[in-house]
Simulated assay, not measured.
Amino acid sequence: MYKVAVVFLLALLSAACQTQSEKAQTEKWDSFRCLHLRDQVPVTRQSAAYIRDRSESGDGLCTTILGQMYERGLGVTVDLDKARATYLVAAKLDRSAYVQLARLAEEGIGEPVDPAKARRLYEQSGAHENNKLAAVRLAKLLEDGVGGPEDKSGALNLYLKSLDRYNDDAWKGVQRLRDPSTIHDAGKVSRYNALWSRGLKNTLSRHMRHANYKFLKDFKKQPNLAPVKLEFEFSAGSLAPTVTILKGSGSSVFDDAVLTEMNLYRFPDEPILPAEQKTWKVNSEFGRDMW
């Protein structure tokens, strides 16, 4: 009898956990629906009512979106005072919403420009933790010494922490401030170099595709040619690679043309190399998909 009771209790607890999990998932999708409805053109009266109802029920994301609607006139009349008040309510539910209030202060939207206030609000929104938008915007203020003391080291740290995509705002910030001798966080260096490699792959692929079209006209169809295996060597301080053919195509004329064309390629920015490392090598092939 005791074992039956225990099994029954465990079944009830499991059902309760599943119910809570399903409820949390439903709440999450209800919140994301606010994002979808905000981006409709135009935002209908029914959509605005749904977002407002979700906000009144204590949904932080939907409350932030309602503030954006008042700010931008999406489905409602533009009302910057209501926008600010709504962002304040959202920030009490989720402090990341302070980034909206910081932006208003920084850009002078509905209030005087106040970069010092913007700095404080970006910090409140979690710029030093996991709010990447706040981190990048705060970093720019620190970099330029706007609203407080200049702090390029602090700005660089925030940019590195916020890296998400090659050539995004955080990446561009790193390029302006980068000094490999002052960057010691191995995790951030690894993340930066991974994005750099991705940028290199994309730009090199575009260069090769362009060369393919050019060579199709110059060399016509020659299916007997093997792909040319290439090595691109990066040297610190230069974006121009040293290109070496590791294995040719079988045609010296074609190989020379490939080498000439690939020497026109330039690396996208620089990787962050350890002090003892002076070069970085990348191998690739040209001509595999040409014919």
Rank of each mutant, 00 (worst) to 15 (best):
L230E: 08
K117L: 15
D151T: 01
S57V: 04
V243W: 11
S181C: 05
K229F: 01
E261Q: 13
P227I: 12
A91S: 15
R84Y: 05
W29K: 08
A15M: 11
L163D: 11
A134H: 04
K214N: 07
G173M: 05
G173C: 08
M69C: 12
A49R: 01
Q100Y: 14
T279R: 13
V99N: 06
G287M: 09
A211D: 11
N283R: 15
I65P: 09
A90E: 07
F254L: 00
Q277D: 14
A236K: 15
G108D: 09
Y87H: 12
E285M: 11
L9T: 09
E22C: 04
V189D: 03
A139P: 08
A5E: 13
F254R: 03
K214L: 13
Q222T: 13
L121P: 06
V89W: 09
K23L: 10
T203N: 06
L195N: 04
P268A: 06
L12G: 00
S205L: 14
K140M: 06
I245P: 04
V113P: 01
G67Y: 08
E276Q: 13
K221A: 06
L141C: 10
M262L: 09
F267S: 04
R176P: 05
V7G: 02
L121H: 11
E22I: 09
R119Q: 05
S96D: 09
V243T: 10
R266T: 02
S251D: 14
M290W: 15
R84W: 03
R206N: 09
V6C: 02
K281I: 05
Q25H: 04
N167P: 01
C17W: 15
N212R: 08
